[in-house]
Amino acid sequence: MITEQIKKLLNEALNPEQIEIIDNSAAHAGHAGARSGGGHYHVTIVADAFEGKSLVQRHQLIYKALGDMMKQQIHALGINAITPTEYSKEL
């Protein structure tokens, strides 16, 4: 399962407090970007690693952790990357 693989890589790289991955691929089946076979996923991740980092830097950390998965298995990744402090404010 791709979602499991995403979760494993992000757990190893970022040691998140919380992580949730949703597979939205079915909603995009057949559109131009999905033809190459890459799926659409959304990840919500709460980690200390994002503290003091801009949105761009947070996303770059995630892309780096996923490495080659971004080339083939993943066409699009929605990202909600927040720190534990920000998360507690959202509750």
């Binding site: 949105l55 761009v56 770059q60 892309y63 971004m70």
Partner: peptide, 16 residues
């Protein structure tokens, strides 16, 4: 260090 498109640049910097 950004593997997907679109990418928006403002004043030479990647916005996201």
């Amino acid at each position: 260090n950004w593997p997907t498109y679109p990418q928006l640049y403002i004043d030479g910097e990647l916005v996201g």
